[in-house]
Nucleic acid binder design. Structure first.
Lengths: 226, 226
DNA sequence: GTCTTCAATGACCAGAATGCGCATGTCGCA
DNA sequence: TGCGACATGCGCATTCTGGTCATTGAAGAC
């Protein structure tokens, strides 16, 4: 996860950054509110750790401005020594997603950050991918090299089957039953659809991913992998 | 919000339900794990409050099964008297989104549930949004580019469903049940309403947000995002 | 109680997209 | 050179979608 830590206490910030970096996250740090707000708006973090006591802008105000002006939905975890109910309510009211009281365990911080990062529509678990080609099963939008592709319904199903199998080879019979069920068309219409799929995902690009294996079937490979 | 409370302590459950109901939420209750799991799978809650000490299935196991088998992404807030780091970590590891220690304040519970349900109480209570298109759920006023839109009741419900799902694709059958319940009209009246919705939210503007995915359904996208 | 208005529905038509079958072209191989 | 397997392009039939409109039914106004 890419995480922004807005915290002016250098020791604490260093602790958090060291621990989370070691756990494989990418960290960024701001020691005052203005810088933090700026970083949060410009970059696209997966989560923000926000101390409430800050020089510059107050933490609550920063949170509100981030939600209101910048219309950002990045999850925010507030960090503070204040543990009265009113403090917490104010935190959530300003748009925070979680609220952690000092002193806290770094383990718990990471667990809560993960929970924040995992939820929400941003991260779609339902995505098939092979190399620079991807198919989002929520939106059913296919992309290659971040270019959106328009596919016919059949080509879309074909792509889905091939992506799920990738880089395995899929037999023609398998593809046919996947698309038409038990009653595939008389002729080998599959070729036409493979052709259409190729036109969409391979032709506009430099490298071809959809390969033919004569007499056997087709497979979708990632040219950059092995 | 529609909230499921899985809690066998009757006093505590009654307290939570009474309080949250009074605050305008719709509550449901299960006193054992099996019933809870069943309700969670069948209905579509905005959040689940889950006690860890339950007859039937253990809370952690229930959480895992919900995530794994049912593939549910409903936010889960765990409720327990156990407050060691290991307990918390186990909770988050099983798929929880938040973890609250007894005794707790009902105010904090509601704040945390709001944060879970909508990532910011502001959004759920007030408005749905996608790009420059928004729907205020208090006034039921839809706007695009700050221009107020007049919609027919059905188009309004259609917009609500699509906005909540955005940018996910919504299948035709899904839209039909969302609007008409189990007995959708004979003909494909949905098209006419989609047409009406398009006329209102897309036609007067330069860019179209409501996209058709042939054979599958419709989706509402933010043209400026990714 | 009647009239008016508006939305929902279902039928219809037209245009476009898609699927499928076929003819032809291409490649590799014996 | 001949054969098998596949790619490609084309045309027709079908399907899908968008748009329009008349009818129906409900809610509100008078």
């Amino acid at each position: 996860m890419r995480i922004l830590v807005i915290e002016d206490n250098e020791d604490l910030a260093a602790n958090i950054i060291e621990y989370l970096s070691a756990r494989g996250h990418v960290l960024d740090n701001a020691t005052d509110g203005v810088t933090g707000l700026h970083l949060a708006v410009v970059h696209n973090f997966d989560a923000i750790v926000l101390d409430l006591m800050l020089p510059g802008i107050d933490g609550l105000a920063l949170c509100e401005r981030l939600r209101a002006e910048a219309d950002s939905q990045t999850p925010i975890l507030m960090l503070t020594a204040r543990d009265t109910i009113d403090d917490k309510l104010a935190g959530f009211a300003s748009g925070a997603d979680d609220y952690l009281i000092k002193p806290f365990s770094l383990l718990e911080l990471e667990a809560r950050l993960s929970a924040l990062g995992n939820r929400g529509p941003r991260r779609s678990v339902h995505q098939l991918k092979a190399g620079d080609l991807s198919l989002d099963l929520d939106t059913w939008q296919a992309e290659r090299q971040n270019v959106k592709l328009t596919l016919t319904p059949t080509a879309l199903r074909l792509l889905e089957v091939l992506l799920r199998a990738s880089p395995r080879l899929v037999r023609r019979a398998e593809l046919e039953t996947a698309i038409w069920g038990d009653h595939p068309p008389d002729s080998e219409a599959l070729r036409t659809h493979i052709h259409a799929l190729r036109a969409a995902i391979d032709k506009p690009f430099a490298t071809a991913m959809l390969q033919t294996v004569p007499t056997m079937g087709y497979r979708l490979i990632d040219p950059d992998a092995g």
